[in-house]
């Protein structure tokens, strides 16, 4: 295994706090959007954009770039925050999120936002889209890889499993799917709305290489990606156990913050918590 330095981990942790602050500010400013699922996916997105993905912010459509596909489109605040921090567009633009004439739509739009690779919002289409990308990469004998982040609510969608079958049929080992297993969807706990467990066994039954990790532990995230890279002949599904609203105490594991922004008072509290975290680095 490649040595992962303390310095790298510290840098990623710090960046993730910066992204979380953006998520809170963006959704507060819009007074809408989906902070909970953005915060749960934040560490996965941070690891990918700030250590793994071969992308070029000055040339967002570079043909040989790695592809990041956000299937759970409602979590786009974390994507926009990562893209802005990575230099795809100015950080100031984040405050236009969900506003009229903005490049940062309420759900991702292809072709409008530099760095955005897919349109999502209606759930369950992103993994199929990723299968198409991975097939194209293989046809052209390219090295670029495809990473898809799915929500656990999306495991309800039939098309997710259509895609799972197709990816294993074609043995797409350049495809890695992260399942943001925060356990909460719009109307409640996933296990109450539509029980998913045993989830890892489901993906294994679809002939994927399956890993289960703590989705907030950077060492585990990076190790999982490395294992996915080493895995031949099968796509890898990383079931990342996460906490909805992760990083702000009063938002954690709260169904409400799936699709609700913070109030003015909550904003102050949330930012104070995140800034205290930042100061500790």
């Amino acid at each position: 295994m490649v040595e992962v330095s303390e310095q790298l981990i510290a840098g990623l942790k710090k960046k993730a706090v910066t992204l979380r602050k953006h998520i809170i500010r963006m959704t507060h400013n819009a007074q809408s959007g989906h902070p909970g699922g953005s915060m749960s996916a934040c560490d996965i997105v941070t690891a990918l954009y700030f250590h793994v993905l071969r992308v070029d912010p000055s040339n967002p459509t570079w043909p040989d770039r790695d592809r990041f596909v956000l299937s759970k489109g409602h979590a786009c605040p974390v994507w926009y925050a990562a893209l802005a921090e990575r230099g795809f567009f100015p950080v100031e633009e984040l405050m236009t999120f969900r506003k009229l004439n903005s490049r940062l739509q309420g759900h991702p739009e292809l072709g409008t936002t530099p760095g955005v690779e897919n349109a999502a919002g209606a759930e369950g289409q992103g993994l199929s889209f990723s299968v198409g990308l991975a097939l194209a990469s293989r046809m052209d004998h390219k090295a670029w890889r495809t990473y898809c982040v799915l929500g656990d609510g999306e495991q309800d969608v039939g098309q997710t499993w259509e895609a799972a079958m197709a990816a294993s049929k074609y043995g797409l080992d350049s495809l890695t799917a992260f399942i943001d297993r925060n356990g909460i969807q719009q109307e409640g706990r996933t296990e109450d709305i539509m029980p998913l467990e045993p989830l890892a066994e489901k993906w294994e039954a679809f002939n994927w290489h399956v890993l289960t990790i703590d989705g907030h532990d950077f060492r585990q995230i990076l190790a999982a990606i490395e294992e996915a890279h080493r895995t031949r002949g099968r796509p890898t599904a990383v079931i990342a156990r996460t906490v909805k609203g992760k990083g702000v105490s009063f938002m954690e594991n709260k169904i409400k913050y799936h699709g609700a922004a913070t109030s003015d008072d909550e904003l102050k509290l949330a930012l104070a918590e995140l800034e205290a975290m930042e100061a500790a680095f």
Binding site: P63, R67, L110, E117, N118, Q125, G126, S128, F129, S130, V131, G132, L133, A134, L135, A136, S137, M139, D140, Q159, A163, A166
Partner: peptide, 11 residues
Amino acid sequence: SVAAGLAAAGK
């Protein structure tokens, strides 16, 4: 959607 992904990669 697979067709869309293929198209996004230039096919």
